[in-house]
């Protein structure tokens, strides 16, 4: 006889709230990739589809020999965290010519905004890399570096590029006037 013996981690759960369950699995996906999920009770169709799409292995209503219980460091998805995710969009790819990002909240762009690309935000815009494209913000501020070729609108007002020198700039309202301030590196760490 040829045989193999494995010990696997089983995660047992009963689904009460579909959304909370999905958020939980999503937040811990990296861990669950290597688990077998044992779901007791009914599995809603959406959950089934999600598990299948993510190729997570699961069994339903299965009574297995109970072994030692272990504690894992699962992340409980936080309510506020999700709210923040919704209001702040982070872009980590370069924005290329013709690409258009519109968002109701804040937008953080970590890579370049190339000539011909456009970011339109109801909230703040933070552009950490070179900007040669267009930015429009209706938020409290725009944070942007040296950008001679860009086209920046703050609350519909075109910002004069010559005022954006070789440094990091914060464009904001002070007493109903648009003010451009140089930002030091120190301040940035907590922005």
């Amino acid at each position: 006889m040829k045989s193999n013996q494995y010990s696997i981690k089983v995660f047992e759960a009963t689904i009460e709230d579909e959304n909370k369950f999905l958020a939980f699995i999503d937040a811990n996906y990296e861990l669950f990739k290597h688990h077998l999920l044992c779901l007791q009770g009914d599995i809603p169709q959406r959950v089934q589809q999600y598990l299948e799409k993510k190729s997570l292995k699961y069994i339903n209503n299965f009574d297995f020999p109970k072994a030692k219980k272990i504690k894992d460091n699962f992340i409980m998805p936080h309510h506020e965290e999700q709210k923040c995710k919704e209001s702040c969009k982070v872009i980590s790819e370069p924005l290329r010519s013709g690409q258009y990002v519109e968002h109701a909240g804040d937008v953080v762009v970590a890579e370049r905004i190339n000539s011909g690309a456009k970011v339109v935000a109801k909230g703040n815009v933070i552009a950490l890399n070179v900007v040669n494209g267009d930015i429009s913000s209706m938020g409290d501020f725009i944070l942007v570096g040296d950008t001679q070729k860009s086209n920046i609108l703050f609350h519909g007002v075109k910002i004069d590029n010559t005022l954006l020198e070789n440094r990091l700039n914060k464009i904001e309202f002070v007493d109903n006037e648009i003010v451009i301030k140089a930002i030091s590196k120190k301040e940035l760490t907590w922005v």
Binding site: E93, R96, S97, G98, Q99, N114, S115, G116
Partner: peptide, 15 residues
Amino acid sequence: VSSIRDSDRAIGILD
């Protein structure tokens, strides 16, 4: 510059 911008656009569509 015009060639580079147009390529940038084409790459965006490719992606």
